[in-house]
Design a protein around this nucleic acid. Sequence first.
RNA 1: CGGGGCGUAGCGCAGCCUGGUAGCGCACCUGGUUCGGGACCAGGGAGUCGGAGGUUCAAAUCCUCUCGCCCCGACCA
Length: 577
Amino acid sequence: MLYTRALIPTVKEAPADAANASHKLLVRAGYIRKVGAGMYDYLPLGLRVLKNIEAVVREEMNRSGAQEILMPALLPAEYFKETGRWDLYGATLFRLEDRKGGEFHLGPTHEEIVTDIARREIKSFRDMPTNLYQIQSKYRDEPRPRGGLLRCREFLMKDAYSFDVSEDAAKASYETMRQTYCRIFDRLGLTYRLVAADPGAIGGSTSAEFQVLADSGEDAIVACDTCDYAANVEIATVKAPPATDEAEAAEDKAKVHTPKVGSIEDVSRFLKKPKEKFLKSLVYLAGKELVLAIVRGDHDVNEIRLARALGVDEVFMAADADVQKATGAAVGFAGPVGFKGKVVVDRAAAAVKNAVTGANETDHHFTGVSRGRDWDGDVADIRLATDGDGCAVCGEAGREGKLKTYRGIEGGHIFILGTKYSEAMGATYSDDKMEKQPIVMGCYGIGVSRLVATTIEQHHDADGIRWPMSIAPYKVHLVSIGKDEPVLAAARKLYDELVAAGVDVLWDDRDERPGVKFKDADLLGMPLRVTIGAKALANGNVELKPRTESDPKKAELVPVADVARVLVERVRAAKTA
RNA sequence: CGGGGCGUAGCGCAGCCUGGUAGCGCACCUGGUUCGGGACCAGGGAGUCGGAGGUUCAAAUCCUCUCGCCCCGACCA
């Protein structure tokens, strides 16, 4: 492509509403433009990247034996009503009516629709295993679109669905997808972690997220420094704490006046006791029941684990008025001693002896509190993992792994769904004894458009984008300096040779000063830059510099006669690496 | 949904408090000089001041309503 013929509207200043590096760079480099909140135009370069990612995903999905289909984005309400998700999805669903008042919505995901295909077309055990996927726009009315392409209301997703005769067979399909995803993320040049995750609203038993590591990521994950345990902090577990220290003599319980000091921080300072000696008491609403959750003063509650311990879908922090009703005290003075409702206590908090806790009386705390004597509750693992915690997995095997925290962007998510959808929608097959069985399903998503931004979050510097070869919109950025005829002739010849060799090349043939061209080249981020200038060319050379080399003086001199061959080789080598 | 902020030229912003000719930088167009890391000089075009209503002789500016957008939180395959 000739730069003078291309629509590449670079700008010096990023729009004020861009917060992430990827958002700023995509706009500045002319890859995307905003149409509305969470809606973007893909300009020519942006679309090329999107298509390149799509191609990698499609190749690997096909290689795994999956078959591509395309389902509608516009859907009648009846399918989601069959499984109850018409109501469950709530405000996230984009709903609309047709001219006759019929109810429709835009697909946020397609389990129901693909299950409908399955129940009609998959009739025998001989029809499985099978895996159907599509690459399609998804629609979700997100509470808050943000981060440019990272969280959109319309976004491109690859969603795949596996159909198997049994849970074991489904596990094999799941494993195939796990390996396929690893190949995809590797080819895209991303550094990622496979982490255990909460299946959330999709449902299902086994699930794992492909978290692309980036400081700007929305998700917090923990990974063991010794074994391969990694999990979203939402569900991460930690090594059980040592049992109560029996050597510590039991104190008597005493009530102390703590006027206007309710937070752990303040009471700790006021009473000069470490936070580890506190029982942090939080009132949660679980269904209709008010429950007291107890964690150690220096820990935080993991609400997803708490909900699981209680056997409910989710829990909510109780409103201040409810807290006062339940404890008889102002917020900040709740405690388990004398609490009338259900109490759930984290393992670490359960082990604290001579604890400090709220007295359920405004402006008062108890000290010297002991579990068993003064209060009790159901012990469970309900705290949030943090940096430095012991790893539960290798810790129990006697090793000393420590958890480290990372930020990640969810690039993919794989699930075993079981029979949730097939049973709700009557998707059954006949087994070899002519008996009807529910199909066992799995589903597998990759946020294709999100990966455009995610890649930049991981691959950029102060000057611009640094595309991995596999998805770069052009592999070679050819810069001709000045208007000397020998320079232009050499550039034209190289350009033609690269095009003939099938190498995607962008030739900056504009009548611009060198500085402008170099700045734009860095911003756009093509992996290889070739500069043809009069001085080097007089000696028969051109300059070759990878985008990852930031020092322009380290450009490599390559004889003009060899450069086409060298470039073709490097592009091929980088693609297969 | 709770808290905060912003809508003025394509982009980034000033002007608003204290009402009175709508400005600056970048980008764009013309001419000239310049030419290896976002040049310079001169000239030029471009804005229903998000929208509606109100107060006023007079509204970008004050008041009311409304729409959109961003940030933090909540929420979120």
